[in-house]
């Protein structure tokens, strides 16, 4: 029974259905429970939070990621799935807080100074939340000083920076330099992404990782989490 509900959560994440009123990627499923109803049901049945997240939401999103990379899914389809995961996480968060289950880590995300493009950053935020990270979104057009202040205040393990434009990506370097100047560089792992940037650029400015899309951003964060060199979280 437990397996059935988790399989249904996974299936409906893949379909991108938040509630029973939603149509899925495939047609003709309106009326069947969506991820919200199924998550409530799973909680009522006493299914573990970790299982709901790992076997339902994360496994579902992994398949969505594969479909996205295979160009079977496009951005709106992936967003629908992310939306479903976001809705489930909202239901689960109070339970997670009560249960004392720790998040995988805290990440601050921001679109850098001068840039107003935030759709990509918002997608990454949702995917990271769905993957079990605590995300603090600073919004767009965020100055290096604001990011430094947020790192001091929030003590995250990761900082995610986004830029769409070649004219603004340079502020990623400024941000990294500001973190270095404030003695915070070795406290956080920095991951960058956005249309303008590349792996090569990430290396050139001294970032720790680069995500070409939202799924890669999550994978890079995961790999940096497990990295032995990770000094993140040591905020003294």
């Amino acid at each position: 029974m437990t397996e059935d509900i988790l399989a249904l959560i996974k299936g409906n994440v893949i379909q991108g259905r938040v509630t029973q009123d939603d149509e899925g990627f495939d047609e003709g499923v309106v009326g069947q429970p969506g991820v919200s109803e199924l998550t409530e049901k799973a909680l009522a049945r006493g299914i573990g939070l970790r299982d709901i997240i790992n076997k339902g939401l994360t496994e579902g999103m992994d398949i969505v990621g594969q479909k996205f990379e295979a160009k079977e899914y496009y951005i709106p389809d992936m967003l629908a799935s992310a939306e479903a995961v976001g809705a489930a996480m909202e239901i689960l968060e109070p339970h997670l807080a009560k249960s004392g289950i720790k998040s995988k880590g805290k990440i601050i995300v921001a679109t850098v100074e001068g840039d107003l493009h935030d759709i990509g950053k918002n997608i990454v935020s949702i995917l990271l939340r769905g993957a079990g990270y605590m995300v603090k979104d600073l919004g767009n057009d965020v100055s290096p000083q604001t990011i430094v202040a947020a790192v001091i205040e929030e003590k995250p393990q990761f900082v995610g920076l986004s830029a769409l434009l070649t004219s603004t990506m340079i502020h990623m370097r400024d941000t990294i330099q500001a973190l270095t100047a404030s003695g915070l560089r070795d406290k956080v792992k920095i991951i960058i992404g956005g249309a303008a940037v590349s792996e090569k650029f990430a290396q050139s400015i001294g970032a720790d990782g680069y995500g070409a899309d939202g799924f890669q951003a999550v994978r890079v964060t995961e790999s940096l989490s497990s990295s032995k060199e990770n000094k993140g979280g040591d905020h003294g």
Binding site: E23, F25, D26, E27, Y74, I75, P76, D77, A80
Partner: peptide
Amino acid sequence: YLGYSADYKPPARILS
């Protein structure tokens, strides 16, 4: 603008 290629028909829910 949503990222669909010209020859691809988006799912019905997106079109609606």
